[in-house]
């Protein structure tokens, strides 16, 4: 598989959140603000790259029968290391994402990519796969987080100082304290609605692209449709 294909798959074609629908637990729980989404997304991406690289590196030595326990061991070790590192260097953000970082272990995306890709492909490809799958996941987390905080509390990039320091606080956009948002967007159901809409949007775009690709055949159908409508 070419790198170009790997990257396109991770970001769009086989996006883990929108197509594979993996990792829903952290995706839905942490996507209440854009910065939370970014934080968890980056942590997940880091773990994905490390675990994909390691698993690809050891793929010839690990026997079939024990491969899944070994994958889980590798992933759990990396997650713990990342969690400790985050606690040491991004302490405030760690406080917010605290309980979700250990849950990266149970994010099916990671063991899924280990099994489906890293255990069958060379190290460089596997790491690129981890990076692009992670980036795809992060983008969805950020979009969903941004949407939810905008609709729910009328802000964008709130809490950015937790990640980039006090200087970045000015980047936070807010409608002000009088804004009464749609609380539903912040609550768990809002995450489901939001994700549903994003998936639908992706379907629409994919369909449109497919139609454009096969334009000559599709044209007559569109005309009849308009005629009927």
């Amino acid at each position: 598989m070419s790198y170009r294909e790997i990257i396109r798959n991770g970001l769009w074609g086989n996006n883990q959140a929108l197509v594979a629908l993996l990792g829903l637990c952290p995706l839905l729980a942490v996507s209440n603000t854009l910065i939370n989404g970014l934080g968890l997304g980056l942590a997940t991406t880091l773990v994905l790259v490390l675990s994909n690289g390691t698993i690809s590196f050891i793929r010839h030595w690990v026997r079939q029968e024990v491969r899944l326990p070994v994958f889980v061991l590798v992933i759990a070790s990396f997650v713990t290391a990342v969690e400790l590192a985050m606690n040491a260097w991004f302490h405030d953000l760690h406080k917010i994402l605290g309980i979700f970082i250990p849950l990266i272990v149970t994010n099916c995306t990671i063991v899924g990519r280990a099994e489906a890709f890293a255990s069958r492909n060379p190290v460089p490809q596997s790491m690129v796969d981890g990076l692009s799958m992670g980036a795809g996941f992060t983008l969805v987390l950020m979009t969903l987080g941004g949407l939810r905080e905008f609709i729910g509390q009328g802000t964008i990039l709130s809490g950015i100082h937790l990640m980039f320091g006090e200087a970045s606080r000015a980047l936070t956009f807010s409608f002000g304290d009088d804004f009464h948002g749609l609380i539903l967007a912040i609550l768990p159901p809002g995450a489901f609605f939001g994700l549903g809409l994003l998936i639908a949007l992706k379907q629409v775009i994919d369909k449109r692209n497919a139609r454009r690709a096969s334009a000559p055949q599709a044209e007559p159908q569109t005309t009849t449709a308009t005629a009927e409508g």
Partner: peptide, 25 residues
């Protein structure tokens, strides 16, 4: 044995990270 080796490697990684970060945390 393979599983055991990875167990030890994983534990080593975690304890090294812990040592490096404990004070800071």
């Amino acid at each position: 044995a393979i599983l055991g080796i990875f167990g030890v490697l994983g534990a080593t990684l975690v304890s090294l990270t812990w040592t490096a970060t404990a004070e800071r945390i």
